[in-house]
Design a protein around this nucleic acid. Structure first.
Lengths: 236, 236
DNA sequence: CTTCTTATAGACCGGATGGTCTACACCTTT
DNA sequence: AAAGGTGTAGACCATCCGGTCTATAAGAAG
Protein backbone atom coordinates (compact mmCIF):
# COMPACT_ATOMS: atom_id res chain seq x y z
CA UNK A 1 0.00 0.00 0.00
CA UNK A 2 1.42 3.31 -1.06
CA UNK A 3 2.06 6.09 1.39
CA UNK A 4 3.76 9.40 1.08
CA UNK A 5 2.25 12.31 -0.79
CA UNK A 6 -1.30 10.96 -0.36
CA UNK A 7 -3.32 13.63 1.37
CA UNK A 8 -6.93 12.72 0.78
CA UNK A 9 -8.07 10.52 3.63
CA UNK A 10 -8.65 6.89 2.79
CA UNK A 11 -12.32 5.99 2.73
CA UNK A 12 -13.18 3.40 5.37
CA UNK A 13 -15.23 0.46 4.21
CA UNK A 14 -17.32 -2.24 5.82
CA UNK A 15 -18.10 -5.31 3.77
CA UNK A 16 -21.21 -7.39 4.39
CA UNK A 17 -21.70 -10.81 2.82
CA UNK A 18 -23.10 -13.96 4.35
CA UNK A 19 -20.71 -16.03 2.26
CA UNK A 20 -17.37 -15.93 4.01
CA UNK A 21 -15.45 -16.92 0.89
CA UNK A 22 -16.80 -14.01 -1.07
CA UNK A 23 -16.31 -11.70 1.82
CA UNK A 24 -12.62 -12.39 2.27
CA UNK A 25 -12.12 -12.40 -1.47
CA UNK A 26 -13.55 -8.93 -1.78
CA UNK A 27 -11.65 -7.76 1.26
CA UNK A 28 -8.37 -8.94 -0.16
CA UNK A 29 -9.13 -7.43 -3.52
CA UNK A 30 -9.83 -4.03 -2.02
CA UNK A 31 -6.79 -4.12 0.22
CA UNK A 32 -4.49 -5.04 -2.60
CA UNK A 33 -5.98 -3.14 -5.51
CA UNK A 34 -7.06 0.06 -3.84
CA UNK A 35 -6.28 2.57 -1.18
CA UNK A 36 -9.43 2.00 0.79
CA UNK A 37 -9.42 0.85 4.34
CA UNK A 38 -11.54 -2.17 5.20
CA UNK A 39 -12.26 -1.46 8.85
CA UNK A 40 -14.65 -4.36 9.43
CA UNK A 41 -16.58 -7.16 7.80
CA UNK A 42 -19.83 -8.88 8.74
CA UNK A 43 -21.67 -11.98 7.61
CA UNK A 44 -25.11 -10.83 8.71
CA UNK A 45 -27.11 -7.66 8.39
CA UNK A 46 -27.75 -7.19 12.07
CA UNK A 47 -24.08 -7.46 12.98
CA UNK A 48 -23.32 -5.11 10.12
CA UNK A 49 -25.62 -2.47 11.53
CA UNK A 50 -23.89 -2.54 14.92
CA UNK A 51 -20.51 -2.29 13.24
CA UNK A 52 -21.65 0.62 11.15
CA UNK A 53 -22.82 2.48 14.22
CA UNK A 54 -19.46 1.80 15.83
CA UNK A 55 -17.07 2.54 12.97
CA UNK A 56 -19.03 5.09 10.97
CA UNK A 57 -17.48 4.04 7.66
CA UNK A 58 -17.84 6.14 4.54
CA UNK A 59 -18.73 3.13 2.42
CA UNK A 60 -20.61 -0.12 2.97
CA UNK A 61 -20.58 -2.96 0.48
CA UNK A 62 -23.78 -4.86 1.11
CA UNK A 63 -24.68 -8.22 -0.33
CA UNK A 64 -28.37 -8.26 -1.15
CA UNK A 65 -28.99 -11.99 -1.12
CA UNK A 66 -28.70 -12.95 2.49
CA UNK A 67 -30.81 -15.19 4.67
CA UNK A 68 -32.25 -13.92 7.95
CA UNK A 69 -32.52 -10.21 7.34
CA UNK A 70 -32.19 -9.45 3.66
CA UNK A 71 -29.92 -6.80 2.30
CA UNK A 72 -32.62 -4.44 1.09
CA UNK A 73 -34.20 -4.17 4.50
CA UNK A 74 -30.77 -3.64 5.96
CA UNK A 75 -30.07 -0.83 3.52
CA UNK A 76 -33.35 0.82 4.40
CA UNK A 77 -32.53 0.63 8.09
CA UNK A 78 -29.06 2.03 7.65
CA UNK A 79 -30.37 4.86 5.51
CA UNK A 80 -32.90 5.70 8.17
CA UNK A 81 -30.07 6.10 10.67
CA UNK A 82 -28.89 8.94 8.48
CA UNK A 83 -25.22 8.53 9.28
CA UNK A 84 -24.03 9.62 5.86
CA UNK A 85 -22.93 6.09 5.07
CA UNK A 86 -22.87 5.44 1.35
CA UNK A 87 -24.03 1.96 0.52
CA UNK A 88 -23.13 -0.05 -2.54
CA UNK A 89 -25.34 -3.05 -3.23
CA UNK A 90 -23.80 -6.30 -4.41
CA UNK A 91 -25.54 -9.26 -5.99
CA UNK A 92 -25.18 -12.03 -8.43
CA UNK A 93 -28.24 -11.16 -10.49
CA UNK A 94 -29.18 -8.13 -12.52
CA UNK A 95 -32.86 -8.37 -11.61
CA UNK A 96 -34.27 -4.94 -12.49
CA UNK A 97 -36.75 -5.06 -9.64
CA UNK A 98 -33.92 -5.53 -7.16
CA UNK A 99 -31.95 -2.72 -8.73
CA UNK A 100 -34.94 -0.45 -8.66
CA UNK A 101 -35.73 -1.14 -5.05
CA UNK A 102 -32.13 -0.79 -3.95
CA UNK A 103 -31.75 2.57 -5.65
CA UNK A 104 -35.14 3.68 -4.40
CA UNK A 105 -34.22 3.19 -0.78
CA UNK A 106 -30.94 4.99 -1.17
CA UNK A 107 -28.15 2.70 -2.39
CA UNK A 108 -25.45 4.82 -3.98
CA UNK A 109 -24.23 2.09 -6.26
CA UNK A 110 -25.08 -1.37 -7.48
CA UNK A 111 -22.66 -3.89 -8.88
CA UNK A 112 -22.68 -7.52 -9.82
CA UNK A 113 -20.31 -10.03 -8.30
CA UNK A 114 -19.62 -11.27 -11.79
CA UNK A 115 -18.20 -7.96 -12.85
CA UNK A 116 -14.48 -7.41 -13.19
CA UNK A 117 -12.67 -6.42 -10.04
CA UNK A 118 -11.61 -3.16 -11.65
CA UNK A 119 -15.30 -2.35 -12.00
CA UNK A 120 -15.80 -2.78 -8.27
CA UNK A 121 -12.87 -0.56 -7.42
CA UNK A 122 -14.08 2.03 -9.88
CA UNK A 123 -17.55 1.97 -8.37
CA UNK A 124 -16.17 2.46 -4.88
CA UNK A 125 -14.05 5.31 -6.16
CA UNK A 126 -17.02 7.05 -7.71
CA UNK A 127 -19.28 6.54 -4.74
CA UNK A 128 -16.59 7.66 -2.32
CA UNK A 129 -16.27 10.79 -4.43
CA UNK A 130 -19.92 11.56 -3.75
CA UNK A 131 -21.40 10.27 -6.96
CA UNK A 132 -24.02 7.64 -7.50
CA UNK A 133 -22.74 4.90 -9.72
CA UNK A 134 -24.53 2.29 -11.79
CA UNK A 135 -22.68 0.41 -14.52
CA UNK A 136 -24.16 1.15 -17.94
CA UNK A 137 -25.76 -2.27 -18.34
CA UNK A 138 -27.51 -2.11 -14.99
CA UNK A 139 -28.47 1.47 -15.60
CA UNK A 140 -30.11 0.41 -18.84
CA UNK A 141 -32.02 -2.34 -17.05
CA UNK A 142 -33.11 0.07 -14.37
CA UNK A 143 -34.49 2.53 -16.87
CA UNK A 144 -36.40 -0.09 -18.79
CA UNK A 145 -38.10 -1.07 -15.58
CA UNK A 146 -38.62 2.53 -14.57
CA UNK A 147 -40.19 3.50 -17.87
CA UNK A 148 -42.35 0.43 -17.95
CA UNK A 149 -43.79 1.37 -14.55
CA UNK A 150 -44.73 4.79 -15.81
CA UNK A 151 -46.09 3.47 -19.04
CA UNK A 152 -48.48 1.11 -17.30
CA UNK A 153 -49.56 3.92 -15.04
CA UNK A 154 -50.33 6.34 -17.84
CA UNK A 155 -51.99 3.67 -19.93
CA UNK A 156 -54.47 3.22 -17.16
CA UNK A 157 -55.11 6.91 -16.74
CA UNK A 158 -55.15 9.29 -19.67
CA UNK A 159 -55.74 6.52 -22.12
CA UNK A 160 -59.16 5.55 -23.43
CA UNK A 161 -61.77 7.74 -21.77
CA UNK A 162 -60.74 10.14 -19.09
CA UNK A 163 -63.95 11.74 -17.94
CA UNK A 164 -61.91 14.54 -16.43
CA UNK A 165 -61.44 15.89 -19.93
CA UNK A 166 -65.08 16.82 -20.12
CA UNK A 167 -64.84 19.21 -17.19
CA UNK A 168 -64.83 22.91 -17.87
CA UNK A 169 -62.12 25.07 -16.43
CA UNK A 170 -64.33 26.34 -13.65
CA UNK A 171 -65.39 22.83 -12.78
CA UNK A 172 -61.76 21.82 -12.55
CA UNK A 173 -61.15 24.63 -10.11
CA UNK A 174 -64.03 23.46 -7.98
CA UNK A 175 -62.88 19.86 -8.14
CA UNK A 176 -59.40 20.95 -7.21
CA UNK A 177 -60.77 22.47 -4.03
CA UNK A 178 -62.87 19.40 -3.35
CA UNK A 179 -59.72 17.27 -3.54
CA UNK A 180 -58.44 19.33 -0.67
CA UNK A 181 -61.40 18.42 1.48
CA UNK A 182 -63.06 21.82 1.43
CA UNK A 183 -66.82 22.31 2.00
CA UNK A 184 -69.27 24.09 -0.26
CA UNK A 185 -69.04 27.16 1.92
CA UNK A 186 -65.27 27.15 1.77
CA UNK A 187 -65.21 26.73 -1.98
CA UNK A 188 -67.73 29.55 -2.37
CA UNK A 189 -65.52 31.87 -0.37
CA UNK A 190 -62.36 30.88 -2.18
CA UNK A 191 -63.88 31.41 -5.60
CA UNK A 192 -65.95 34.47 -4.64
CA UNK A 193 -69.18 32.92 -5.84
CA UNK A 194 -72.34 31.88 -4.02
CA UNK A 195 -72.74 28.56 -2.34
CA UNK A 196 -75.55 27.69 -4.71
CA UNK A 197 -73.29 28.14 -7.68
CA UNK A 198 -70.77 25.81 -6.16
CA UNK A 199 -73.50 23.25 -5.73
CA UNK A 200 -74.46 23.61 -9.35
CA UNK A 201 -70.88 23.07 -10.44
CA UNK A 202 -70.47 20.13 -8.11
CA UNK A 203 -73.61 18.51 -9.44
CA UNK A 204 -72.37 18.94 -12.97
CA UNK A 205 -69.06 17.43 -11.97
CA UNK A 206 -70.80 14.42 -10.46
CA UNK A 207 -72.76 13.85 -13.63
CA UNK A 208 -69.73 14.19 -15.86
CA UNK A 209 -67.65 11.87 -13.72
CA UNK A 210 -70.58 9.54 -13.22
CA UNK A 211 -70.29 9.48 -9.45
CA UNK A 212 -72.70 10.09 -6.61
CA UNK A 213 -70.80 12.07 -4.03
CA UNK A 214 -67.74 14.18 -3.35
CA UNK A 215 -65.66 11.33 -1.99
CA UNK A 216 -66.09 9.34 -5.16
CA UNK A 217 -65.36 12.42 -7.20
CA UNK A 218 -62.15 13.02 -5.28
CA UNK A 219 -61.14 9.40 -5.69
CA UNK A 220 -61.85 9.52 -9.40
CA UNK A 221 -59.81 12.66 -9.74
CA UNK A 222 -56.89 11.23 -7.81
CA UNK A 223 -56.90 7.95 -9.68
CA UNK A 224 -57.12 9.53 -13.07
CA UNK A 225 -54.27 11.93 -13.05
CA UNK A 226 -56.02 15.06 -11.90
CA UNK A 227 -53.03 16.43 -10.06
CA UNK A 228 -50.40 14.67 -12.07
CA UNK A 229 -48.77 17.84 -13.12
CA UNK A 230 -47.49 18.17 -9.58
CA UNK A 231 -47.50 14.65 -8.22
CA UNK A 232 -46.85 11.57 -10.24
CA UNK A 233 -47.20 8.06 -9.03
CA UNK A 234 -45.18 5.04 -9.91
CA UNK A 235 -46.77 1.67 -9.57
CA UNK A 236 -44.45 -0.81 -7.92
CA UNK B 1 -18.90 6.57 -45.50
CA UNK B 2 -17.76 3.00 -45.52
CA UNK B 3 -19.52 0.35 -47.50
CA UNK B 4 -18.75 -3.22 -48.24
CA UNK B 5 -19.12 -6.05 -45.77
CA UNK B 6 -21.58 -4.06 -43.64
CA UNK B 7 -24.70 -6.16 -43.26
CA UNK B 8 -26.59 -4.69 -40.33
CA UNK B 9 -29.00 -2.12 -41.67
CA UNK B 10 -28.10 1.48 -40.96
CA UNK B 11 -30.34 3.05 -38.37
CA UNK B 12 -32.31 5.96 -39.77
CA UNK B 13 -32.26 9.15 -37.75
CA UNK B 14 -34.27 12.33 -37.61
CA UNK B 15 -32.71 15.31 -35.90
CA UNK B 16 -34.81 18.02 -34.28
CA UNK B 17 -33.33 21.32 -33.14
CA UNK B 18 -34.73 24.80 -33.47
CA UNK B 19 -31.23 26.17 -33.93
CA UNK B 20 -30.28 25.56 -37.51
CA UNK B 21 -26.54 25.88 -36.84
CA UNK B 22 -26.63 23.14 -34.25
CA UNK B 23 -28.84 21.03 -36.39
CA UNK B 24 -26.58 21.01 -39.40
CA UNK B 25 -23.55 20.60 -37.17
CA UNK B 26 -24.97 17.47 -35.65
CA UNK B 27 -26.14 16.20 -39.00
CA UNK B 28 -22.69 16.57 -40.48
CA UNK B 29 -21.09 14.97 -37.47
CA UNK B 30 -23.30 11.93 -37.72
CA UNK B 31 -22.87 11.59 -41.45
CA UNK B 32 -19.12 11.80 -41.22
CA UNK B 33 -18.39 10.01 -38.01
CA UNK B 34 -20.94 7.22 -38.08
CA UNK B 35 -22.83 4.86 -40.27
CA UNK B 36 -26.24 6.19 -39.42
CA UNK B 37 -28.54 7.63 -41.97
CA UNK B 38 -29.97 11.07 -41.31
CA UNK B 39 -33.22 10.81 -43.24
CA UNK B 40 -34.63 14.17 -42.20
CA UNK B 41 -34.21 17.16 -39.94
CA UNK B 42 -36.70 19.56 -38.41
CA UNK B 43 -36.51 22.86 -36.58
CA UNK B 44 -39.82 22.52 -34.78
CA UNK B 45 -41.55 19.79 -32.85
CA UNK B 46 -44.72 19.79 -34.91
CA UNK B 47 -42.86 19.39 -38.18
CA UNK B 48 -40.78 16.69 -36.54
CA UNK B 49 -43.85 14.68 -35.65
CA UNK B 50 -45.11 14.72 -39.22
CA UNK B 51 -41.70 13.65 -40.46
CA UNK B 52 -41.55 10.84 -37.95
CA UNK B 53 -44.90 9.53 -39.09
CA UNK B 54 -43.68 9.67 -42.66
CA UNK B 55 -40.19 8.21 -42.34
CA UNK B 56 -40.56 5.94 -39.32
CA UNK B 57 -36.93 6.37 -38.22
CA UNK B 58 -35.36 4.14 -35.62
CA UNK B 59 -33.84 7.09 -33.77
CA UNK B 60 -34.84 10.67 -33.10
CA UNK B 61 -32.47 13.24 -31.65
CA UNK B 62 -34.67 15.79 -29.96
CA UNK B 63 -33.58 19.12 -28.61
CA UNK B 64 -35.45 19.83 -25.40
CA UNK B 65 -35.14 23.60 -25.31
CA UNK B 66 -37.35 24.77 -28.09
CA UNK B 67 -39.88 27.57 -28.30
CA UNK B 68 -43.43 26.90 -29.43
CA UNK B 69 -43.91 23.28 -28.48
CA UNK B 70 -41.20 22.16 -26.10
CA UNK B 71 -39.23 19.00 -26.55
CA UNK B 72 -40.63 17.13 -23.56
CA UNK B 73 -44.18 17.49 -24.76
CA UNK B 74 -43.05 16.41 -28.19
CA UNK B 75 -41.40 13.31 -26.77
CA UNK B 76 -44.54 12.43 -24.87
CA UNK B 77 -46.60 12.77 -28.03
CA UNK B 78 -44.26 10.68 -30.09
CA UNK B 79 -44.17 7.99 -27.43
CA UNK B 80 -47.93 7.92 -27.39
CA UNK B 81 -47.91 7.16 -31.12
CA UNK B 82 -46.11 3.97 -30.17
CA UNK B 83 -44.16 3.68 -33.41
CA UNK B 84 -41.14 2.11 -31.78
CA UNK B 85 -39.13 5.26 -32.35
CA UNK B 86 -36.29 5.56 -29.86
CA UNK B 87 -35.77 9.12 -28.76
CA UNK B 88 -32.58 10.65 -27.46
CA UNK B 89 -32.95 13.96 -25.68
CA UNK B 90 -30.45 16.73 -26.26
CA UNK B 91 -29.90 19.83 -24.15
CA UNK B 92 -27.36 22.26 -22.99
CA UNK B 93 -28.07 21.83 -19.28
CA UNK B 94 -27.82 18.91 -16.94
CA UNK B 95 -30.88 19.95 -14.95
CA UNK B 96 -31.88 16.80 -13.03
CA UNK B 97 -35.56 17.66 -13.23
CA UNK B 98 -35.36 17.78 -17.01
CA UNK B 99 -33.47 14.51 -17.11
CA UNK B 100 -35.97 12.90 -14.80
CA UNK B 101 -38.96 14.03 -16.79
CA UNK B 102 -37.41 13.07 -20.11
CA UNK B 103 -36.60 9.56 -18.92
CA UNK B 104 -39.98 9.27 -17.26
CA UNK B 105 -41.89 9.86 -20.45
CA UNK B 106 -39.78 7.42 -22.38
CA UNK B 107 -36.59 8.98 -23.73
CA UNK B 108 -34.06 6.23 -24.39
CA UNK B 109 -31.08 8.47 -23.93
CA UNK B 110 -30.06 11.91 -22.79
CA UNK B 111 -26.95 13.78 -23.76
CA UNK B 112 -25.57 17.24 -23.41
CA UNK B 113 -24.60 19.36 -26.38
CA UNK B 114 -21.38 20.14 -24.59
CA UNK B 115 -20.32 16.53 -24.58
CA UNK B 116 -17.72 15.21 -26.98
CA UNK B 117 -18.98 14.14 -30.36
CA UNK B 118 -17.76 10.61 -29.71
CA UNK B 119 -20.12 10.52 -26.76
CA UNK B 120 -23.04 11.35 -29.01
CA UNK B 121 -22.14 8.68 -31.51
CA UNK B 122 -21.70 6.18 -28.71
CA UNK B 123 -25.08 7.07 -27.26
CA UNK B 124 -26.77 6.59 -30.61
CA UNK B 125 -24.99 3.29 -31.01
CA UNK B 126 -26.20 2.06 -27.66
CA UNK B 127 -29.75 3.26 -28.13
CA UNK B 128 -29.92 1.84 -31.63
CA UNK B 129 -28.81 -1.47 -30.13
CA UNK B 130 -31.87 -1.44 -27.92
CA UNK B 131 -30.30 -0.15 -24.75
CA UNK B 132 -31.13 2.90 -22.72
CA UNK B 133 -28.16 5.16 -22.36
CA UNK B 134 -27.34 7.87 -19.86
CA UNK B 135 -23.76 9.09 -19.47
CA UNK B 136 -22.45 8.39 -15.98
CA UNK B 137 -22.53 12.00 -14.86
CA UNK B 138 -26.14 12.48 -15.89
CA UNK B 139 -27.06 9.12 -14.46
CA UNK B 140 -25.63 10.21 -11.14
CA UNK B 141 -27.63 13.43 -11.24
CA UNK B 142 -30.75 11.52 -12.10
CA UNK B 143 -30.36 9.18 -9.16
CA UNK B 144 -29.73 11.96 -6.70
CA UNK B 145 -32.97 13.54 -7.77
CA UNK B 146 -34.77 10.21 -7.79
CA UNK B 147 -33.64 9.29 -4.30
CA UNK B 148 -34.40 12.72 -2.94
CA UNK B 149 -37.96 12.40 -4.18
CA UNK B 150 -38.41 9.15 -2.34
CA UNK B 151 -36.74 10.43 0.76
CA UNK B 152 -39.08 13.38 1.04
CA UNK B 153 -41.99 11.09 0.47
CA UNK B 154 -41.09 8.62 3.19
CA UNK B 155 -40.14 11.39 5.58
CA UNK B 156 -43.64 12.71 5.27
CA UNK B 157 -45.31 9.36 5.69
CA UNK B 158 -44.06 6.67 7.99
CA UNK B 159 -41.73 9.01 9.79
CA UNK B 160 -42.60 10.94 12.92
CA UNK B 161 -46.31 10.65 13.64
CA UNK B 162 -48.56 8.69 11.38
CA UNK B 163 -51.97 9.04 12.91
CA UNK B 164 -53.09 5.99 10.98
CA UNK B 165 -51.18 3.89 13.51
CA UNK B 166 -53.65 4.76 16.19
CA UNK B 167 -56.56 3.19 14.35
CA UNK B 168 -57.90 -0.13 15.54
CA UNK B 169 -58.27 -2.97 13.11
CA UNK B 170 -61.98 -2.43 12.79
CA UNK B 171 -61.50 1.25 12.19
CA UNK B 172 -59.03 0.43 9.45
CA UNK B 173 -61.61 -1.78 7.79
CA UNK B 174 -64.12 1.03 7.91
CA UNK B 175 -61.61 3.55 6.59
CA UNK B 176 -60.71 1.15 3.83
CA UNK B 177 -64.32 1.14 2.70
CA UNK B 178 -64.51 4.90 3.01
CA UNK B 179 -61.54 5.21 0.67
CA UNK B 180 -63.66 3.41 -1.87
CA UNK B 181 -66.35 6.05 -1.65
CA UNK B 182 -68.93 3.92 0.12
CA UNK B 183 -71.73 5.42 2.26
CA UNK B 184 -72.55 4.59 5.86
CA UNK B 185 -75.32 2.32 4.71
CA UNK B 186 -73.03 0.49 2.35
CA UNK B 187 -70.33 0.04 4.95
CA UNK B 188 -72.90 -1.26 7.43
CA UNK B 189 -74.05 -3.87 4.94
CA UNK B 190 -70.55 -4.93 4.00
CA UNK B 191 -69.46 -5.35 7.60
CA UNK B 192 -72.77 -6.77 8.83
CA UNK B 193 -73.15 -4.17 11.54
CA UNK B 194 -75.66 -1.40 12.09
CA UNK B 195 -75.38 1.97 10.48
CA UNK B 196 -75.06 3.59 13.88
CA UNK B 197 -72.04 1.50 14.67
CA UNK B 198 -70.42 2.59 11.47
CA UNK B 199 -71.07 6.18 12.45
CA UNK B 200 -69.43 5.60 15.79
CA UNK B 201 -66.38 4.12 14.14
CA UNK B 202 -66.24 6.90 11.61
CA UNK B 203 -66.44 9.52 14.31
CA UNK B 204 -63.62 7.86 16.17
CA UNK B 205 -61.60 7.77 12.98
CA UNK B 206 -62.17 11.49 12.45
CA UNK B 207 -60.97 12.26 15.93
CA UNK B 208 -57.91 10.08 15.64
CA UNK B 209 -56.97 11.51 12.27
CA UNK B 210 -57.90 15.01 13.38
CA UNK B 211 -60.14 15.69 10.43
CA UNK B 212 -63.69 16.91 10.03
CA UNK B 213 -65.24 14.82 7.30
CA UNK B 214 -64.89 11.71 5.20
CA UNK B 215 -63.22 13.44 2.30
CA UNK B 216 -60.43 14.70 4.51
CA UNK B 217 -60.14 11.30 6.12
CA UNK B 218 -59.79 9.65 2.73
CA UNK B 219 -57.22 12.20 1.68
CA UNK B 220 -55.27 11.70 4.87
CA UNK B 221 -55.32 7.96 4.39
CA UNK B 222 -54.18 8.20 0.78
CA UNK B 223 -51.42 10.66 1.53
CA UNK B 224 -50.08 8.77 4.48
CA UNK B 225 -49.49 5.37 3.10
CA UNK B 226 -52.77 3.70 3.88
CA UNK B 227 -52.64 1.58 0.76
CA UNK B 228 -48.97 1.97 0.08
CA UNK B 229 -48.24 -1.66 0.21
CA UNK B 230 -49.54 -1.82 -3.32
CA UNK B 231 -48.85 1.60 -4.75
CA UNK B 232 -45.93 3.84 -3.99
CA UNK B 233 -45.82 7.41 -5.04
CA UNK B 234 -42.96 9.61 -6.11
CA UNK B 235 -43.26 13.29 -5.51
CA UNK B 236 -42.17 15.35 -8.48
C1' DC C 1 -61.72 -7.79 40.62
C1' DT C 2 -61.47 -3.58 38.49
C1' DT C 3 -60.21 -0.73 34.80
C1' DC C 4 -59.40 0.12 29.96
C1' DT C 5 -60.17 -0.78 25.31
C1' DT C 6 -62.90 -2.16 21.63
C1' DA C 7 -66.99 -3.18 19.15
C1' DT C 8 -71.53 -2.75 19.21
C1' DA C 9 -75.87 0.25 19.05
C1' DG C 10 -79.59 3.67 19.98
C1' DA C 11 -81.35 8.66 20.18
C1' DC C 12 -81.34 13.34 18.91
C1' DC C 13 -80.21 17.42 16.36
C1' DG C 14 -78.48 20.77 13.23
C1' DG C 15 -76.11 21.53 9.36
C1' DA C 16 -74.15 19.79 5.04
C1' DT C 17 -74.96 17.52 0.91
C1' DG C 18 -77.21 15.92 -3.35
C1' DG C 19 -81.18 16.15 -6.80
C1' DT C 20 -84.01 18.80 -9.57
C1' DC C 21 -85.89 22.73 -11.72
C1' DT C 22 -85.78 27.37 -13.17
C1' DA C 23 -83.51 31.61 -14.67
C1' DC C 24 -80.41 35.00 -16.63
C1' DA C 25 -76.24 37.08 -18.56
C1' DC C 26 -72.38 36.40 -21.50
C1' DC C 27 -69.90 34.41 -25.37
C1' DT C 28 -69.14 31.79 -29.32
C1' DT C 29 -70.75 29.54 -33.22
C1' DT C 30 -73.74 29.00 -36.87
C1' DA D 1 -80.72 36.40 -35.21
C1' DA D 2 -80.75 31.90 -33.16
C1' DA D 3 -78.63 28.13 -30.73
C1' DG D 4 -75.56 26.11 -27.60
C1' DG D 5 -72.30 26.18 -23.91
C1' DT D 6 -70.82 28.29 -19.60
C1' DG D 7 -70.99 30.64 -15.22
C1' DT D 8 -73.87 32.49 -12.18
C1' DA D 9 -77.77 31.98 -8.67
C1' DG D 10 -82.18 30.97 -6.23
C1' DA D 11 -85.77 27.60 -4.27
C1' DC D 12 -87.23 23.31 -2.34
C1' DC D 13 -86.70 18.92 -0.28
C1' DA D 14 -85.10 14.48 1.17
C1' DT D 15 -81.38 12.45 2.80
C1' DC D 16 -76.86 12.03 4.47
C1' DC D 17 -73.48 13.32 7.59
C1' DG D 18 -71.15 14.77 11.79
C1' DG D 19 -71.40 15.79 16.90
C1' DT D 20 -72.64 14.37 21.27
C1' DC D 21 -74.31 11.52 24.83
C1' DT D 22 -75.50 7.15 26.67
C1' DA D 23 -75.14 2.18 27.15
C1' DT D 24 -73.82 -2.76 26.99
C1' DA D 25 -70.98 -6.84 26.18
C1' DA D 26 -66.54 -8.95 25.51
C1' DG D 27 -61.90 -9.16 26.18
C1' DA D 28 -57.31 -7.48 27.77
C1' DA D 29 -54.53 -5.47 31.19
C1' DG D 30 -53.58 -4.19 35.65
Amino acid sequence: MRRGIEFKKKARIIIVDDNYEHLSGIKELIEIESDFDVVATATSASVAISLIKKYRPEIVLMDINMPEKDGLTAIAEIEKLDLGVRIIALTGYDDPDLIFRAMKIGAKGYILKTMASAQLIYAIDEVAAGKIYLPATLSSRFFEYFQQSFKEETENTDDEENLLNYLTQREEEVLDLLTQGITYKGVAQKLFISETTVKTHVNNIFQKLQVNDRTQAVLYALNNGFLNRRKVKIAI
